[in-house]
């Protein structure tokens, strides 16, 4: 990095833990998370705010951390995939993704799950259309989205204590027409 004199001291809370760090003004939030804090679950896909692989929650709102500066996170709360559920206790979204086979290579998955988390927090009873629209800022190249949609609907149902009986074994949901 360049001279320390250029650096800004910021305090950012990540997954509930406060961090006071010195950052270069141009440092991207995703690099602070991945390199500075070694939270490598947040991935970099396109650098252009299109793919959503780098999505994290910023005070609960999904943002693309590849086009946000670390200094903008000063005084704010960030949630990454590492803060979604714990190692032993999964978040319903994480459960839904594995039960409904909502991931293949896993690269888009953290961003997709965080977007989904915010979606079902704000809209606890989403329709399939709500989910498809809500996820439209996140790209996936493996799944064709159908199982991702099912995963999010599963997680929404789980939040209410209603778990869908289907578990990805040959069932299908219709798409937008």
């Amino acid at each position: 990095m360049t001279d320390a004199a250029d650096e800004h001291r910021i305090t950012v809370t990540v997954n509930g833990e406060p961090h006071a760090v010195e950052v270069e003004p141009r440092l991207l939030l995703v690099h602070l998370l991945r390199e500075g804090l070694r939270l490598t679950g947040t991935h970099i896909g396109c650098d252009t705010t299109n793919c959503g692989a780098c999505t994290v929650l910023y005070d609960g709102t999904p943002v693309k951390s590849c086009t946000m500066l670390a200094v903008q996170a000063d005084g704010h709360e960030i949630t990454t995939v590492e803060g979604l559920g714990s190692l032993s206790e999964l978040d319903p979204v994480q459960e839904g993704f594995t039960i409904e086979h909502g991931l293949q290579c896993g690269f888009c998955t953290p961003g997709m799950m965080l977007t989904a988390k915010a979606l079902i927090t704000n809209n606890p009873n989403p329709s399939e259309e709500d989910v498809r629209w809500g996820l439209s800022g996140n790209l996936c190249r493996c799944t064709g989205y159908q199982n991702i949609v099912k995963a999010v609907l599963w997680a929404a149902a789980k939040q209410h204590g209603h778990v869908a009986e289907t578990n990805g074994q040959g069932t299908t949901v219709s798409g937008r027409t």
Binding site: V81, I99, G106
Partner: peptide, 23 residues
């Protein structure tokens, strides 16, 4: 068997090991 995937355990927790994660 539509067995649930072994890989998912690390991917859904952000514990995958992709090339850019290596330091």
């Amino acid at each position: 068997s539509s067995r649930q995937r072994v890989e998912d355990a690390r991917f859904i927790r952000g514990r995958g090991n992709y090339i850019d994660d290596l330091k």
